[in-house]
């Protein structure tokens, strides 16, 4: 395949790092204390990365990815707290809210033709203002603390709790991983096997040619942002489950990782090229480095420095190879 996606490089790098960290600090392989939370974080941030990836696929950005997660989580908290809905019913309502805010954003972009950067920036501000107002009006300490049945289990259960006869899954893999695997499969299928998915890619690749080939580009813009809101909502849910409460601050830390995971994974800023697996691997890489450095005791302070340098090196190398490829 000629679209060079740095998948093998990423995988190799992750394996090498895991081995290095494991050797330096055998505690790295502790299933309960290290691997389980690491994989849970990877699951959450993979979904965050996917939420950015779907808009990058049409050449747009979503700066409000974190706030959409908070918006969505707010509806989930509301439905548990006020309507006493079961866990998954609340999840559905929250996802609907996320999809709606995403679709609304996409609609504004498609309708006005204003740059997605500006529109999602404005949306981010608006939600940043709106969400705390709701929380202070409806809750005592800016969080919905009601825990619906099943939430604790979802947070703590691993595949070790799923047994077929005597064979049980690994206790290192949290069940929440399934919430990341499901959208990965769905998006993989969307982009590879369906008409709307391919039309998203072509809209990102060349919007004018897409329009002239009969692709409803405006509708695709709405689709992409809708999916972004939906996935952001899912990520918000996962983070809330992992931390135990639905708060206004959910998603605050999403923006940077959302780009890191997707871009490291080979998704193009300009649109037209996505990689679902790449987003997973890119996210995994950043989180493995984070957790590994913590364990080895290098300390959090260097963490972002390394991440930034790796991002720059990876992209420069990629660009360099591409340019050489063009020449030869």
């Amino acid at each position: 395949m000629s679209t060079r996606k740095p998948l093998f490089g990423l995988l190799g790098l992750i394996v090498v790092l895991v081995v290095v960290f494991g050797t330096l600090s055998p505690a790295f392989f502790d299933e309960r204390l290290v691997l389980f939370p690491l994989l849970r974080d990877i699951a959450i941030y993979t979904v965050v990365g996917l939420a950015q990836m779907v808009v990058l696929s049409i050449g747009h950005m979503n700066l409000a990815v974190g706030r959409m997660a908070a918006f969505s989580a707010m509806f989930m908290g509301l439905s548990y707290d006020r309507l006493h809905l079961p866990l998954y019913a609340g999840l559905c309502i929250g996802l609907l809210a996320g999809a709606a805010i995403g679709a609304f954003t996409g609609w504004i972009i498609a309708r006005t033709g204003v740059n997605s950067f500006v529109v999602t920036l404005a949306m981010d501000f608006a939600l940043l203002g709106l969400i705390p107002v709701v929380y202070t009006a409806l809750t005592a300490n800016a969080a919905f603390t009601v825990k619906p049945d099943g939430m604790r289990e979802l947070r703590q259960y691993s595949l070790g709790d799923v047994c077929l006869g005597n064979v049980c899954g690994s206790p290192a893999v949290p069940q929440m991983m399934l919430l990341a695997v499901a959208p990965m499969l769905a998006l993989g299928y969307l982009y590879h096997g369906t008409r709307p998915g391919r039309e998203l890619l072509l809209t990102g690749s060349n919007p004018l040619a897409a329009e002239l080939s009969g692709i409803p580009t405006r509708r695709r813009v709405v689709t992409a942002h809708l999916l972004s809101g939906l996935l952001a909502g899912l990520a918000g849910f996962m983070l809330a489950v992992a931390t135990g409460s639905f708060r206004a601050t959910i998603g605050e830390e999403f923006l940077l990782p959302s780009f890191l995971g997707a871009i490291l994974g080979g998704t193009a800023m300009a649109g037209g090229v996505v990689s679902v697996i790449g987003t997973f691997l890119g996210t995994s890489l950043t989180l493995v480095i984070r957790r590994g450095l913590e364990l080895v005791g290098i300390g959090l302070e260097y963490l972002n420095v390394y991440l930034g340098v790796i991002l720059l090196l990876a992209l420069s190398a990629d660009r360099f190879l591409q340019r050489r490829g063009v020449k030869s």
Partner: peptide, 17 residues
Amino acid sequence: QPSWVNFVVGAVVLGTV
């Protein structure tokens, strides 16, 4: 609430463009 400021800024940004 302080957060109203952000809401207004968002609305103004969008409105301007």
